[in-house]
Amino acid sequence: MKTLSLKNLRKTYFDPYAGSQVTAVHDVSLDVEQGEFVSVVGPSGCGKTTILNMIAGFIPYTGDEILIDGNLVKGPGPDRGVVFQSFALFPWKTVLENVGFGPKMRGVPKDERDRTAREYLALAGLSHAADRYPNELSGGMQQRVGVVRALANNPAVLLMDEPFASVDAQTRMTLQEELTRIWQERKPTVIFITHDVAEAVFLANRVVVLSKGRVLDQIKVDLPRPRVWDHLIEDETFKRLSAQVLQMVRAA
């Protein structure tokens, strides 16, 4: 079943520096099945973040349509959970309150949403941090909160915008492994935006390569799960797929 469907998406900006219209997204069509993990990879300026912002409803889209479970996207909504590069946690709320925010907006009573939030915090190994404030956590921990905050709202699709780009390399690898584990347990539908080719291949079932506002190619990733860096780093299939994607991105 199709969870997300983009049809002939386009986006043109007025660039005040160039003094002219700039086309960020030319013509992008994409279907994502329920429970699929899709990485969208491309060089900076390829339009990947613009596409994500249009799906999220943060910027108005132009083109034919964006459908979530068959419904047209009109502005932001809880059917699309977003994980931001800058985490975007609420500094004035505890970790528990951050994760329980989505359920709170749906009118879930406090006891129940606290229980839900604790369950998701446990999933990310954050039970001990429930009563802390975001600024008391490391970057890696903050983004774990960011991921489970989006998941706790049970969205139809999880939109991740370079979520691990602002943490250190070691933490990033741990977060990537944790994300694949969580995905296996919960099977959310994920669109994962990144410029990191290895990350895109490591996480996804399918990698979409974007270039100059167009879909250049799509590659299926049939690597076994659970995915662990220690195994994959020397894996021939992983190396071949990464090289293939890298070539496309560089030629783009």
């Binding site: 502005g75 699309r80 931001f84 975007a88 946690l89 609420f90 925010f101 989006a150 709202n153």
Partner: peptide
Amino acid sequence: TIRNAAASLGA
């Protein structure tokens, strides 16, 4: 982004 986060969580 914080306002967007709230909106995407249903606020």
